[in-house]
Design a protein around this nucleic acid. Structure first.
Lengths: 334, 334
DNA sequence: TAATATAACTTAAACGTTTAAGTCAAGGAA
DNA sequence: TTCCTTGACTTAAACGTTTAAGTTATATTA
């Protein structure tokens, strides 16, 4: 049978309250008693029943992350690194991490949040892939549930967030391409309500402007953050009467699709076409050619967000933070 | 304030037992009453407090997965697809999925299991990356905690497992390479106690034997399941006085490292060197050249294992299952 | 008609903690 | 001596469910 607090209390002939307080470090327990309690708890292999503890403490020591997976099959390396970071840091903070998946904006997604909020499954949430108008943010704010985010939208002041600076950074990358002589630089993005799309696209436009290159709407084509999306978009762009000589992609995955499309068309990436991404996935280093990208330290970011959330849960107001991605130049841009 | 079962009971002037039983579908509740209960529960936004429920039911409706991440930074796409599958299927089964990470065999790993087992955090576990002698299996068996696995070791009879047939399949791949004229086929594996290493290496040896190629220990070099490992191993193998003309890698990630090493050495993969992997990662399709591999449907596998575990938890004895990976021939083997 | 079965509830105990409030002996101050 | 502190506990009430064991009124059977 499972060993409970009662078992260790009985063994020592003390009340369960004493055991509880001894283990929790209350000062009204003698040193000798505390020593004994800790020892027998250890001996018997006592571990507090979490359900009972949560019920009583009204706090779960768990945080939730609902992975915004657009489709059932979904293998974005960004998220495996992100989850590894969340998992590691949660464990370090003695928190449990609850993970689920749901297509963004779907009824299932809402259901998951509702269950976890009202069922008191978690003390707070981690969010990412924010939208400009994000129902999750309104909802969590309204219900006063703590959360911390990667990226931020117009309500950024209301919650702690970790933001990877994108406008200036992308602009810098675009200017680098322009400096290499590219005049027709295409942009493959994603859905317009995504914060990352808005920011990175703004960076693209800023970059063009600073390089003195006129904006050409024909060079903008939407992807969907996957290689498939990038593949299709690249084929479209490269079939234009006046095709681009460089393509900036909203993320590395998209860029991988572009690389494939180019290869299929016999276009030498790095020579007659420059391609760049955003994320700094491990794969970007080994793609052929290796991909120029804006690297964000996903694992560390995940850890930091967990720490932010922990502080928020314990009543503090952790400041938001901005991280500058590192521009990594590789062969895909010559 | 949080709405409890008491609130909906009060509103209807019935006992909380009635509400509980009405919502749980017990037959001793009149249809009219049940209708009312369901309706007011809905109206008030009642969601059962999970902690209370678990405490009383002695069951958590959660399953756990501790990701065997060898190092803090860790971005294996295999695992993101695997977790997506676990997450989706758990949600479908109305289960919560607890995720953590810990280096295999580390004290932290053991700590996580202990906490979840004795703290009654989960009803069962999902395991993978099994070892021949796997303490997790002994431990969970001893404590009578349900678990289901991907892969199986010598104790396979004791737990439901989903196994991807490897010996015959790898053998088939090796024979295909032999059929292409390769006589010096190298093998880059991983640590010897890993089940996947044992199986895939056995397949390699069987393949050689059936093709009538003598086994050459110089062509065996260990990796560590990462591109870095594959990269280093490939450089070693390709520096041999009599280097291999084909390299089979224990997984795709390793193969990606090999591709990079070959490229660095100016070796044309697909022409003067054949490379093959195992996993069928999405990236294998877009690598350059695209990678010949044994494809396993990771997402579906994850879903199936969750369903197995669910059946096991509810007292059934689900049969184990074997899946045959699909041999996908791509340019990396010419 | 009386005894019995059934439908539709209610009562109250449990699940294993935490914690506010209470007890009680020993020591110190007046 | 008596009163007040203090240290070191104990008691008992929660936390919000589920569920075994009642309790009725009504319907059915002998």
């Amino acid at each position: 049978m499972k060993v409970t607090i009662r078992d260790v209390a009985k063994k020592l002939n003390v009340s369960i309250a004493t055991v509880s307080r001894a283990l929790d470090g209350y000062p009204d327990i003698s040193d000798e008693m505390r020593r004994q309690v800790i020892q027998t708890a250890e001996e018997l292999g006592y571990v507090p029943n979490q359900a009972a503890r949560h019920l009583r403490r009204r706090r779960t020591d768990a945080i939730g992350y609902i992975l915004p997976a657009p489709e059932p099959r979904f293998g974005d390396p960004f998220f495996s690194e992100f989850i590894a970071g969340l998992g590691d840091e949660s464990a370090r903070q003695n928190l449990d991490l609850l993970v689920s998946t749901a297509p963004p904006g779907s009824p299932e997604e809402e259901g998951r949040y509702t269950r976890w909020i009202h069922g008191m499954k978690v003390d707070g949430f981690i969010l990412n892939r924010l939208k400009q108008q994000d129902w999750r943010i309104s909802r969590l704010t309204a219900e006063k549930i703590p959360f911390a985010t990667l990226e931020c939208n117009q309500d950024a002041a209301k919650y702690p967030n970790l933001t990877v600076e994108s406008v200036e950074s992308v602009s810098r990358l675009i200017q680098y391409l322009a400096g290499k002589g590219h005049q027709r630089i295409a942009y493959i993005g994603a859905h317009d309500d995504l914060v990352i799309q808005v920011d990175r696209f703004a960076g693209y436009q800023l970059g063009l402007k600073q390089a003195g290159i006129p904006f050409d709407p024909n060079l903008i084509f939407p992807g969907n953050l996957t290689p498939q999306g990038g593949f299709a978009a690249a084929h479209h762009l490269l079939s234009l009467p006046n095709p681009p000589t460089a393509i900036f992609c909203i993320n590395d995955l998209t860029a991988f699709g572009v690389l494939r499309a180019a290869q299929e068309r016999g276009i030498q990436v790095g020579k007659s076409l420059a391609v760049a991404g955003f994320d700094g996935l491990a794969e970007s280093e080994t793609s052929q050619p290796p991909l120029t990208t804006l690297n964000q330290p996903v694992y560390d970011i995940a850890c930091k967000i967990v720490r932010m959330l922990v502080r928020l849960i314990s009543g503090e107001h952790p400041p938001s933070e901005t991280i500058i991605p590192e521009l990594i130049l590789r062969d895909s841009t010559g």
